[in-house]
């Protein structure tokens, strides 16, 4: 693996076609690669570079800017424990310690069996439900150290498989623009008039 499989390659082309400039698809394609392989491989970045017409250096330049892309093998479950203000005020560090203790790794590490990667994360936009965490970007609110232990246990036993897909998969539903409904992406430089519903005269006269 590493290069896109046939289905994902088709998806990649579908994604690219939505944007007026192919480079815009860079981040969505990195997500797609991460969904396929659990992390972003060197080979995937080269292929993405070809697909969107940039150099591999530009792909890693963009990719490495963003927190969510992982460039090395990552646990099936990425546990992100929020450590920002409201969670910090309400005991986030206890959650982190509980997770470290239970998993036997430090934040930033991956368990030897490849099941878990643990991270201290920044604000997850659930501050009223502090302290919170995410497993593969699925929330767990108002967590306690005991709750963390239980969660890890459930994950390990596969009891949450229905709710939490493996690392790399975000939305399990993708947007598909039906061919007969989509307007299509147009080269920005090829457009010189207003869209159909805007009368030229009104626009020209100023409003």
């Amino acid at each position: 693996m590493a290069r896109f499989n046939e289905t994902n390659l088709a998806t990649a082309h579908e994604i690219i076609a939505r944007y007026p400039r192919p480079k815009s698809a860079l981040i969505p394609l990195l997500h797609l690669a991460q969904e396929q392989d659990g992390y972003v491989t060197d080979e995937a970045m080269r292929q993405i570079a070809d697909l969107v017409g940039v150099t591999p250096a530009e792909v890693i330049g963009t990719g490495s800017f963003y927190e969510m892309f992982r460039f090395e093998p990552t646990g099936r479950y990425l546990i992100n424990i929020c450590g920002t203000m409201s969670c910090a005020l309400l005991g986030a560090s206890d959650l982190l310690h509980a997770a470290e203790r239970t998993l036997g790794i430090h934040a930033g590490g991956t368990t030897a069996d490849g099941m878990f990667t643990l991270h201290q994360a920044e604000c997850q936009a659930a501050c009223t439900e502090a302290p919170c965490l995410q497993v593969n970007y699925r929330y767990r609110f108002r967590m306690t150290p005991d709750g963390v232990e239980q969660l890890i246990d459930d994950l390990r036993a596969g009891r949450l498989d229905d709710e939490i897909p493996p690392h790399g998969t975000l939305a399990r539903v993708r947007q598909h623009i039906p061919a007969d409904r989509g307007v299509g992406a147009v080269d920005p430089d090829a457009v010189d008039g207003p869209p159909a519903w805007i009368p030229v005269t009104v626009e020209g006269a100023g409003s």
Binding site: R18, Y19, S24, I27, P28, L30, H31, G63, Y66, E67, M68, F69, L170, A171, Q175, I177, P178, D180, R181, G182, V183, G184, A185, P195, A196, W197
Partner: peptide
């Protein structure tokens, strides 16, 4: 999409995720 609700108004909405 094209000709929304039968009008001249046509627009695509493209979903994009950050990272």
């Amino acid at each position: 999409g094209k000709n929304i609700l039968g009008s001249e108004f046509s627009v695509d909405i493209v979903l994009h995720w950050g990272a």
